[in-house]
Amino acid sequence: MSTATVLARAARAEWSRIWSVRSSWVLVVCLGLFVVGVGALAGVDAARNPGSVPPGSTAWDGARFTAMFALFGTVALAVMTSTADHGTGAIVPTLQWTPRRGVLLTARSAVIALSVTVIGIAFVTGASIAITLIASEVALPVGQGLRSMGDLVVVLGCGALLGIGLGLATRSTAAALVLAIALLLVLPLLVANLPFDWATTVSSRLPGSGALFLIFGEGPRDDMTVASARLTLVAWAAGATALGGWRLLRSDAGH
């Protein structure tokens, strides 16, 4: 059997494993209601107080705040789905079905990352649409939307791979979630506020700073660019995936 055939079969199995359980759908529905709901609240505020909307602002600008919720929600989903069968012991039959661990790593990473990225993009887009439907004076330009969603694809995709890598490395949902939140939120803010010159440089190299820069256009250093933020996120995602893949490939599944 060719590698491509085995990979396709493993991808179908991963898709079924993730979306055949109720918890995945519950998390997605809750995340969608929250993200789109926050967008709707922003639209209500803009409709009631049109003077509070800065000149030239669009619905995409208003939905930027919801992108952070989408990021943490999709990372949580990525962590949960990547560690679920380790927590239940189902990893043993998973590896019996797909004994080529490299194929399993590729299929799991691709299916989870693509799924949660599409989900996050859909919800943030929904929040933007909600804003412009409620506050009709707030425009929804397609060009800006494509640029904003392009950056968000990088943020969500890399965030998902970071969560998957941490999940495979720790084999613990709780531990991986704590590490992901620390890297994406706590450490960038904490380190940036230390009274040392090197602290802002270290903070700018953390994945959370790259995500914040691509979403809001601001970071701990004035010399941060879109390219440097993307490179930071890609490097962390690749490193986490390599670490998680190393443990999957090299250590016993039961330990």
Rank of each mutant, 00 (worst) to 15 (best):
W25T: 01
V26C: 13
L27F: 15
L27W: 05
V28L: 09
V29P: 06
V29K: 12
V29H: 01
C30R: 11
L31F: 03
L31V: 11
G32S: 10
L33R: 12
L33V: 10
L33H: 09
F34D: 07
F34E: 08
V35M: 14
V35Q: 13
V35N: 10
V36G: 05
G37W: 04
V38H: 05
V38D: 01
A40K: 03
A40L: 05
L41W: 15
A42M: 13
G43M: 11
D45C: 07
D45V: 15
A46S: 08
N49D: 15
N49P: 03
P50D: 13
P50F: 14
G51R: 15
G51I: 06
G51V: 07
G51P: 03
P54L: 00
P55W: 12
G56P: 00
S57F: 13
S57K: 11
S57L: 07
T58R: 08
W60N: 14
D61Q: 10
D61S: 14
D61W: 12
G62K: 10
A63M: 03
T66P: 06
A67K: 04
M68C: 13
F69V: 04
F69R: 12
F69Y: 08
F69A: 14
F69N: 02
L71Y: 00
L71M: 15
F72I: 03
G73V: 00
G73S: 09
